[in-house]
């Protein structure tokens, strides 16, 4: 109980601090709004990488260092499918850019799921009793994914040019133009946070996952095929990360640095929230996302350009100093 109260206080404190800094830095309500929205946008994208990372770690004790690569691959595939030329050319088949975007996201998610399935079934499964090998394996897979992306799409970053529905519209608030697309991503992220939470709390597979995080052996002894659950969860985690990359691409484009940047930030989210805690991952994503946006805003016009990239780590160090198991972590 005391630990929970402390976590709650810490979350509120960090939130107030970030919002306060954003407020002090802003010149107008519109400016303030932009910082908050871009923080939430970043937070939701982070959640899509971190949720898979966290659930897979909690259930399977596997830290999937290739999780960021699935995000990157998702971004490239969505970009490729949306734009003319490239590997997947949908221009002729789907001339409407909105429909094409939906198809592009679907292809990215399906590819993420397939690649995730292949990694778990083909490579990870023989290594469940060897944790260090798993780390090396997933790290190796992330390097292969990076080289494969460079081979197929070259190292030149792509920025999104094919506009569609929500991507090109804006709404106005406090005399400031906001991109509807950011709001769209934040809404999708919010819906997914709730949906996955309900899935974990209410469904049989959710109960199995929560039980498996506590005691895998007993779950097996009850007659549940834990390996099949591993495959399902791992595949799902990779698909979600690819989904994140796909919906991030219209804003962030596709580049080879996406994977490592998002992996690093997602790891700080998972550790900050508490390893294996779903609520911790959701809250951690928002906090880290906001901290990055606030730091970006603060760093403008100063010589401290590195501030946004070190802020998640600073936040992490600060929380871990007081609570080594993270905000929602079990002390085990």
């Amino acid at each position: 109980m005391r630990a929970q109260r402390f976590s709650l206080l810490a979350i509120v404190g960090i939130l107030l601090f970030l919002v306060g800094v954003a407020f002090v830095n802003s010149n107008s309500p519109g400016d303030f709004g932009i910082t908050l929205l871009s923080g939430l946008f970043q937070g939701m994208l982070l959640f899509l990488v971190a949720s898979g990372l966290s659930i897979v770690f909690g259930l399977m004790d596997v830290l999937n260092l290739a999780q960021g690569s699935y995000f990157m691959v998702g971004a490239y595939i969505a970009y490729d499918a949306q734009h003319p030329g490239g590997v997947i050319d949908l221009m002729g088949a789907l001339p409407d850019p909105n429909v094409r975007f939906i198809a592009a996201v679907a292809i990215a998610v399906a590819s993420g799921a397939l690649l995730g399935y292949m990694l778990e079934r083909g490579l990870l499964r023989p290594l469940y009793s060897r944790p260090i090998f798993q780390l090396v394996l997933t790290f190796g897979v992330s390097l292969i994914a990076l080289e494969a992306v460079k081979f197929i799409w070259t190292t030149t970053p792509y920025s999104w040019t094919e506009l569609f529905g929500v991507r090109e519209t804006f709404f106005e608030l406090f005399g400031q133009r906001f991109s509807t697309y950011r709001l769209f991503v934040v809404a999708i992220g919010g819906v997914l946070i709730v949906a996955i939470g309900v899935l974990l709390q209410r469904t049989r597979i959710g109960i199995i996952i929560r039980a498996g995080v506590e005691d895998r052996e007993m779950v097996q002894a009850l007659g549940i095929n834990v390996r099949a659950v591993f495959t399902l969860v791992f595949t799902f985690g990779c698909a979600i990360a690819a989904f994140g990359g796909a919906i991030a691409a219209p804003f962030l484009g596709a580049s080879t640095t996406l994977g490592s940047v998002f992996l690093l930030q997602a790891i700080s989210v998972v550790v900050l929230g508490g390893m294996g805690s779903y609520a911790g991952t959701a809250v951690g994503s928002v906090l880290v996302g906001l901290s990055i946006a606030v730091a970006q805003d603060t760093a403008i016009g100063t010589s401290f350009a590195a501030l946004p990239s070190i802020t998640p780590m600073l936040l992490l160090v600060l929380v871990l100093l007081v609570r080594p198991s993270g905000l929602f972590g079990n002390t085990r």
């Binding site: 109960i207 039980a211 005691d215 007993m218 097996q220 002894a221 009850l222 549940i224």
Partner: peptide
């Protein structure tokens, strides 16, 4: 283990192995 359990064997281990985060019903 899961295949053995499915044949109709129930296991009540030492130290009970209750899932502490799950409700009794779950």
């Amino acid at each position: 283990p899961h295949a053995i359990a499915q044949m109709g064997i129930g296991y009540v281990p030492e130290h009970r192995a209750i899932f502490k985060g799950l409700s009794v019903r779950e």
